[in-house]
Write a protein that binds this DNA or RNA. Structure first.
Lengths: 241, 241
DNA sequence: CAGTGGTCTAGACCACTGT
DNA sequence: CAGTGGTCTAGACCACTGC
């Protein structure tokens, strides 16, 4: 057990160490981590203690167990993202599957607020994507995305139509950048001249705005995103207790 | 271990049994449940198995452990309710604490949809509360609340100003009805003549609408609620991974 | 079949709470 | 101080996966 040896419980120190292995990329999504008996031996603890540490990481969504196969680093699925709650508005036709298209890929200087969110010097250039999401024949949302050039340089030479439908696996494949978590903030605004025209909402109509800051396993901010969507297509549900 | 003895793991059967003790009121919020050694003996299992069952209920927010004191049935706090994300709009003055007032308490026949949600015969009468929530000098939201008369009869003779600021503890004290969980659905609408006038929003302005169905420990629907709030004061945040 | 995670036990010892 | 939950151990056996 390296590093600090304060009087934290062993399973927590163990958890922290396993987390750093994930963050550093030593353990990578898709391949099994060492089995419980091996971990118990490596860390000189009982197998029950290993299980407990693994439990906490499974709970946090970082690991995934599969009986008989092993324990794996999980790729975040973002199932609970707010932007998944835009629904099809024209239900007369058949249910449509969502589709997304990158409209443009440029490099520019984002606002000071965005630089700050991404931990960049104010005025630094940044990769800027615009993306349209549709459901059936109607536009549901428009994304504006900013990425730091130093980590995402490989994206500069890629033309919009070459982007995949899912961006996060694409980031991983092209730039080796893994998204681990994000914070989203929802507000409601009214459409103005600044609202992305692709949405086709009249001025004054309510628009749902979602701001997202996504981070890597080590907590570094990797992506800043703003999404606008027609409020009429938005329906969000939570269970509480 | 009463009831079914299928091939579920013991800790799950144990969990189910403890859950039914909570649902039936045999274990009540505020007083400690039997200690782990006693439970282990009662159920004829090892203490580790008891701990595991308790763990799941703690995770689900139904029990609460307190080292050295005991394990208790938890009163739900509804910290993550959507309606807690209406914020003060006039931040020039001092930060204000939220305040809520019951405006009216009547008995009437709610819409068919509401009867269905509450598992009532269509056309059954129901208790109907209207409530105003303010933050500082501004109205943040208006609630319309429906409660089945058979369980909440004691509320009929209570005049609006006698209601407490927190309704759920009030339900518990007056009617012995405990709220265990709820489902909330958020949509965005535009203000019309039907929008509660207390909100002071102009026609056409965006309004956040939250629908809530709250249930008891046994899953019975106990309260149906609709909340309207000025969208400009709404800011909702989630962490995802 | 060997290897993995899942369940369960019985017990030791620690840390915190309230009297 | 006695009583509670919190940590940790070492081992047995089961259930599932993939070869």
């Amino acid at each position: 057990m390296p590093t600090v040896d304060s009087r934290l419980p062993r399973y927590q120190r163990l958890r922290d160490d396993m987390l750093s292995r994930i963050a550093s990329g030593a353990w990578v999504p898709g391949v099994a981590i060492p089995n419980e008996a091996q971990l118990a031996e490596q860390y000189h603890v009982a197998i029950g203690t290993v299980r407990r540490a693994v439990d906490t990481l499974v709970n946090d969504g970082l690991l995934e167990r599969s009986q008989g196969r092993g324990t794996f680093v999980r790729r975040p699925s973002f199932d609970s993202s707010l932007v998944r709650f835009f629904r099809q508005i024209d239900t007369s036709g058949p249910p449509a599957s969502p589709c997304s298209t990158v409209l443009s890929n440029t490099v520019n200087k984002p606002s000071d607020a965005i630089c700050e969110a991404l931990d960049l010097e104010t005025g630094s250039p940044s990769i800027h994507l615009r993306r349209l999401r549709t459901l059936g024949n109607t536009a549901v949302s428009v994304d504006e995305i900013w990425l730091p050039v130093n980590r995402f340089a490989a994206l500069r030479d890629i033309s919009p139509h070459e982007f995949g439908s899912l961006l996060y696996p694409f980031y991983e494949a092209q730039c080796g950048q893994l998204i681990a978590s994000a914070r989203e903030t929802l507000t409601v605004v009214t459409a103005t001249a600044d609202t992305p025209g692709e949405l086709n909402v009249p001025d004054g109509a309510p628009v749902v705005h979602v701001e997202r800051l996504a981070r890597g396993y080590d907590g570094t901010p990797l992506e800043y995103r703003r999404t606008w969507g027609n409020a009429a297509t938005f329906r969000y549900q939570v269970d509480i207790n």
